[in-house]
């Protein structure tokens, strides 16, 4: 079994629905993160370590009806992360990225223009912890030729990055994988649409046969690998649905998918 399946198969779900050929769709992913280890005493002996995996947020992708130009797509993203400091504690704050992305309907889903909002919110009430709201902070981004520019509205700051390859993001890559058009090759990565990680590659993964909740599934997929990133493994079923995006300490698993 592939090394990326060591912790997360129990979170995967099977989806027996046709490939997404609808003009608009919605996909929801749950986020689980491996946090720490626990030990248990069994028959008087300490056993472990057992990895502790916890739910830590969600990712929702809403692919919008394309405009008349077929080479462009748009999607709305809500990416929420929320964790607790210690095992067993309730989450007491959450961080949310909300974005609207216009991107190319090419092999990588290159973001062309986007708007992003980031904020951190306390979750009340949580005993003993008091967090401050921060944000929302708004950004816009665009790619012109090989130059990517990200502007923060509040501060007026501009960041420019020189791209040497087609660019992608987690969000648009998932959609392009589901469209079945992704090809191996070099790529630059806009992590969270904000952190530029250039010089990566998309490389195919060996096919896997695994059991998902009683159903045998044949999976294929790609890895995003290279400098300044832990490999991300994208696993797809035979209908190209991206069932999981698995890092080393984090997994996004598909929980809902619908045509709109």
């Amino acid at each position: 079994m592939h090394l990326s399946f060591d912790l997360y198969p129990s979170y995967l779900q099977s989806f027996d629905i046709a490939p997404l050929e609808c003009v608009a769709s919605r996909q929801h992913y749950a986020i689980h993160a491996m946090r720490n280890y626990a030990y248990r005493t069994e028959n008087g002996r300490q056993e472990g370590p057992f990895p502790q995996v916890r739910p830590e947020g969600s990712l929702e992708l809403e692919c919008l009806k394309p405009p008349t130009i077929n080479s462009l797509r748009s999607m709305e993203v809500t990416h929420t992360r929320s964790w607790s400091t210690w095992t067993g504690q309730k989450h007491s704050s959450k961080q949310t990225i909300a974005a609207k992305i216009d991107y190319a309907a090419n092999a990588t889903g290159s973001p062309g223009k986007w708007k992003l909002s980031y904020q951190s919110d306390p979750i009340f009430p949580v005993k003993s912890y008091r967090y401050s709201k921060i944000g929302p902070m708004r950004q816009t981004g665009h790619r012109l030729g090989n130059v990517i520019t990200i502007s923060t509205t509040d501060s007026g700051q501009d960041r420019t990055y020189q791209a040497h390859h087609p660019t992608t993001s987690l969000y648009t890559l998932i959609e392009r994988l589901q469209a079945g058009v992704v090809e191996p090759g070099p790529i630059d990565y806009l992590d969270d649409l904000t952190m530029f990680r250039p010089g990566l590659e998309i490389t195919p993964l060996p096919d896997q046969r695994i059991e998902i909740k009683g159903t045998i599934e044949d999976l294929h997929g790609f890895a995003l690998v290279g400098p300044a990133l832990l490999p991300l493994y994208f696993w797809q079923n035979s209908n190209n649905h991206v069932l999981a995006v698995i890092g080393r300490n984090v997994a996004y698993t598909l929980t809902e998918i619908e045509c709109k």
């Binding site: 993160a33 830590e56 704050s93 951190s120 008091r130 967090y131 904000t194």
Partner: peptide
């Protein structure tokens, strides 16, 4: 203090920079 301690480096350090 805008959020919890103990981010997950792999997918939360980006948020520390944004905050």
């Amino acid at each position: 203090v805008p959020h919890n301690s103990h981010p997950q480096g792999e997918y939360s350090d980006n948020l520390i920079a944004l905050s």
